[in-house]
Design a binder for these strands. Structure first.
Lengths: 208, 208
DNA sequence: GTGTTATTTGAGTGATCGTTCCATATATTA
DNA sequence: TAATATATGGAACGATCACTCAAATAACAC
């Protein structure tokens, strides 16, 4: 099983470009301009390859976008599981998640905002399939967060009457809003202040 | 001053279509598909007019979009001022605003989500000017909300130490997140539950 | 060496993009 | 009626869209 990535081919002319590096450049461009706002010409220019190489190496614009989304979510230290690992409480895990997003959305080394949170919200009918990709990611995030809260309710860490789904939707909404505001120029401090305000809404507490 | 709208022209062949009705149709299309996702061909088809009439009546795609945004925000009962009028407290005003957005974003008579909250977040460089239009609206909303909270602090209705900007950013983020989730299929009940979670904590209060 | 396979380059596909031109039609003003 | 002014439908503008083709090239196996 040596079909993916930059591994050597058994046969045929070897690829003339670094697939991972090209994918990363494509990811950054999609991140900044969205799916519809990024043209094949834009991609080939920044990836440094010809259209035929792009299609030979990635299949189609949509397939490339799909891979870019996977790369985006596989960034070290960005995944849900990594962030909640080692947290002493669900509350602490939630704060970590929110803070990580606030910091990631305003990292000067990458485009402002999020590649998923608000992607494909307005899309042409012919790009519905592509818009569904980030939407599915949002659904997945919502489900993971719901599961986290459900477990916490089961473990008695959250009040028994807590609505896990609504709480998950609430924090997801905060993240999505932070992504929009980061895109609009909000600073890391701006977003971290939002995080702390949102954390003050923890169920069952009087005051933070 | 009788230059706009459907009023009669002094000279020349009169317009053959209902300008307000056509603009409304364009607004709904932009709302559903965004600026980049809506083509002139789409617009002329649903507006029932030829390209020349569109350009003669509205100037350009971007000018039409600008007018559509104005129409969107001028919907009866949707404006900031209308919603906070008559509220007994800032907290009540805030809840009214959030609830109005939750209901508006899931109105079955109109496209799901918001025409402004997440518009233009991913955009091609050549559409930056158009993307700036909803971004400016978001800034305006943030400022109005900040002003509301500042007044409340001045009036002693909110604790003196309250950060009006961060609180405004927080509620704006909730609204923006609700818009994304509405687009993804969230129901009115889903969004109203988010609203109540967001309202569950109020600065200076112990518990709701 | 020959044959096979995959990727390269470079040109080019039809379709659609936002926009404009033109001749014609229809109104008011003189 | 003549002049002026705006709106119309229909065709077309150059540019760009995502995508593909043929031929050349570079690795492998034999």
């Amino acid at each position: 099983m040596k079909k993916d990535g930059n591994e050597a081919r058994a046969r045929g002319r070897p690829r003339g470009f670094d697939r991972d590096a090209a994918l990363r450049k494509a990811m950054l461009l999609f991140w900044e301009r969205g799916y519809e706002g990024t043209s094949i010409a834009d991609l080939t220019a920044t990836m440094g390859i010809a259209p035929a190489s792009l299609y030979g190496g990635f299949g189609s614009k949509q397939a490339l976008y799909r891979e870019a989304l996977v790369l985006y979510t596989s960034a070290p230290g960005a995944s849900f599981a990594e962030l909640i690992a080692g947290a002493k409480s669900v509350r602490e895990a939630t704060r970590r998640l929110l803070r990580a997003r606030a910091i990631g959305f305003t990292d000067p080394a990458t485009p402002a905002g999020c590649m998923i949170s608000a992607a494909g919200v307005g899309a042409a009918p012919e790009n519905r399939d592509a818009a569904e990709l980030p939407a599915a990611r949002r659904r997945g995030g919502l489900e993971r967060w719901t599961g986290l809260f459900r477990e916490a309710i089961g473990a008695g860490e959250l009040p028994a009457g807590t609505d896990a789904v609504s709480l998950a939707r609430f924090y997801a909404a905060v993240v999505q809003g932070m992504a929009v505001q980061a895109h609009d120029g909000a600073s890391e401090a701006d977003l971290l202040a939002i995080v702390e305000t949102a954390m003050a809404h923890w169920p069952g507490d009087g005051r933070e």
